[in-house]
Amino acid sequence: MKSKVKSILFHSLFVSVSLALITACGDSEKKLPILGERDWVKKTVDGKEVVDTIYNTIPKFAFVNQYGDTITEKIVENKIYVTDFFFTTCPTICPVMKKQMVKVYEAYKGNPDVMILSHSIDPEHDTPAVLNQFAKDLGVDGQQWQFLTGDKARIYEIGQKNYMSTAKEDTTVQGGYIHSGAFILVDKDKHVRGMYDGTTEEGTKKLLNDMERLLAEYKK
């Protein structure tokens, strides 16, 4: 169990290090990179052939929040948001992640441009009522921080394909699931612009710093 947690931590560390390297190569001072798989299509504009890049974009989704309301991608329209994956009975990295996420919540409380979406990877247990109590006990109210549950396959799919955050069931580990401890930053165009180690103080500091940079992109 210890080694599993370590491997999770190592994995998230690896991801953040490689991301840091990628960022270091680009024009990191100006803009955050767009992360994820991309595709290129050729099209003809004014008789000339041009190549268009298609970036990884968060698709439409429909989940249920801690108030029992159906939440779609509309809720983050024209907002940047931070997202993560967790489950309420997780005894390992989730409490640490939630402690760090509270810092993000406190820093942007009331800011209409910023939201937080936390997806449960154990939706059978984490019903809206369970999430509601969890949010309350964490000291979170209102709409800014959404705790989402819903179809398990959909949650795992969007997590792995689009947010690039792994989660799977594993009965050998404490709690029954292993998942990444990443915080994922998404911009107003639904592109992933950063991934951070949500289990550490440093990862969260970097996220807060990058959120400022991302918000600044829209202030022109």
């Binding site: 005894p91 990295i93 409490p95 402690k99 309350k136 006990d137 964490l138 000291g139």
Partner: peptide, 12 residues
Amino acid sequence: NCHQMEGKGMSN
């Protein structure tokens, strides 16, 4: 992870 380094727990 839960009870915190300072033993103060975490919110409610």
